[in-house]
Amino acid sequence: MRVKGHPLVWHTVQPDWLMAVGDDEVEPLLRAHVREVVADFADVIQLWDAINETVIMPVFDNGDNAITPLAASRGRQYLIRLAFEEARAANPAATFVINDFDLSPDYERVIEEALDGGVRIDAIGLQTHMHQGYRGEEEILSIVDRFARFGLPLQLTETTFVSGDLMPLEIEDLNDYRVDAWPTTPEGEARQADDIERHYRSLYGHPAVESLTYWGFTDAGAWLGAPSGIVRADGSPKPSYDVLERLIRGEWWTPPTRVRTDDAGRIRVDGVAGSYTVASGDAAVDFEVGRGVETSSVVELTA
């Protein structure tokens, strides 16, 4: 299972003692923290959200923190460069992602300025928490198409669908929504399963989309107390779990298959994009089926 680190730099989670430290002291501490964490976990984590939610970072006003003042005084792009350069210095082989929930043109401008400034970004993270209901294929794909213009892989980093009552649309900051109980319901579970299937199918087929991370496996301890997992709090699977299992392990997973060559010693492989190994006896060779490629190159195996 591939492990991802989230995130290295953010303005919301920090030790309390950092609040008493000024910008001139926060910056070297932050640099050291990024380097140490990436280096310490280099044997486990090769994929990181390097910096999270930079659009709002310099002007965040929903709680005091030590990062927002640093971003305001040094500049947003200064923090982005800090995160990526310190992280890459600690592990040059890792993949580092910029991530945000603000998918407006403001985020596009942030990315454009960073790239123009020479920051090496490996992938673009797009959050899609949909506690207020599925935005639909047309809206989500239009967002993906906008960010695909950068030519970088897109990671749908935080996908959420609830299986209970939907959050009211008038809530602007999802963190402001508080209820005593938010149970999963049969009707909500059916809606969640349908929404997840539509969402995954549409994004799986998009050539710019590299990965999709579902945000929260279980309802137990879920963000905002929402019934957003694909299993219930007691561990029993919801219909959405069955949908994902059917799609991933059924339609999109190529199981080990034994085939016979033709008279010329050739085999035909039909499968989804990904990594494959063909083996005969003790000999084996790896090959790739690329996204958006209908036919793959020929590989030779000498037994």
Results as ranks from 00 to 15, higher is better:
Asp282Met: 13
Thr159Cys: 13
Pro28Glu: 03
Gly118Met: 14
Asp165Arg: 03
Glu172Tyr: 04
Pro69Cys: 10
Glu86Pro: 02
Val179Asp: 09
Ala233Val: 07
Val278Trp: 01
Glu113Ser: 15
Ile45Lys: 00
Asp234His: 14
Ile140Lys: 05
Ala193Val: 01
Leu169His: 13
Val34Pro: 05
Pro69Trp: 15
Pro186His: 09
Thr68Lys: 10
Gly63Glu: 07
Ile121Asp: 06
Arg81Phe: 00
Ala114Cys: 07
Ala66Leu: 08
Arg81Ser: 03
Gly229Asp: 11
His11Val: 02
Gly133Cys: 09
Thr302Asp: 15
Ile67Phe: 00
Thr184Leu: 06
Val162Ile: 14
Ala226Trp: 07
Pro256Phe: 05
Ser73Lys: 11
Pro69Lys: 12
Ser211Asn: 05
Arg291Gly: 04
Arg109Val: 08
Ala50Leu: 03
Val26Arg: 08
Ile230Pro: 02
Asp180Glu: 14
Thr95Cys: 09
Leu103Asp: 09
Val162His: 07
His33Pro: 00
Gly205His: 06
Leu79Val: 15
Gly271Ser: 14
Ala190Lys: 03
Gly136Val: 00
Leu47Pro: 11
Val9Glu: 01
Thr95Lys: 03
Trp48Tyr: 05
Val13Pro: 00
Thr128Tyr: 08
Gln127Arg: 13
Pro58Ser: 12
Glu139Arg: 10
His199Pro: 08
Gly250Thr: 06
Gln46Ala: 10
Glu210Trp: 01
Gly75Ser: 09
Trp17Phe: 15
Val13Ile: 10
Pro256Lys: 14
Val144Gly: 02
Glu86Arg: 04
Ser211Phe: 04
Pro207Leu: 00
Arg232Phe: 09
Pro28Gln: 05
Gly188Thr: 04
Leu79Ala: 10
Leu301Glu: 05
Phe217Gln: 01
Ser202Asp: 10
Ala87Lys: 03
Ala50Val: 04
His33Met: 03
Tyr241Met: 14
Gln155Ser: 13
Leu70Trp: 12
Ala20Pro: 06
Ala123Gln: 05
Ala42Leu: 02
Ile248Met: 08
Val293Trp: 07
Val37Tyr: 00
Leu103Val: 10
Phe217Thr: 13
Ala50Thr: 01
Leu82Met: 07
Val26Glu: 06
Leu115His: 12
Val44Ile: 08
Asp194Arg: 10
Gly63Asn: 08
Leu169Cys: 06
Ala71Phe: 01
Trp223Ser: 14
Arg135Cys: 12
Arg146Leu: 02
Glu108Thr: 08
Ile98Asn: 03
Ala32Ser: 15
Thr213Met: 06
Val231Leu: 13
Val298Ser: 15
Trp252Cys: 11
Arg31Cys: 09
Asp195Asn: 12
Pro58Trp: 05
Asp180Ser: 12
Pro183Thr: 07
Leu156Gly: 08
Phe41Thr: 02
Asp262Arg: 15
Ser104Val: 11
Val299Ile: 14
Gly118His: 13
Trp252Phe: 11
Arg266Ile: 15
Val209Asp: 01
Asp16Glu: 13
Pro15Lys: 08
Gly225Leu: 06
Thr12Ala: 12
Leu224Glu: 06
Ala303Arg: 15
Glu300Lys: 13
Gly265Val: 09
Ser280Asp: 06
Arg201Val: 10
Val13Leu: 02
Asn65Thr: 00
Gln14Pro: 01
Arg76Ala: 13
Arg2Ile: 12
Ala283Trp: 10
Gly292Ala: 03
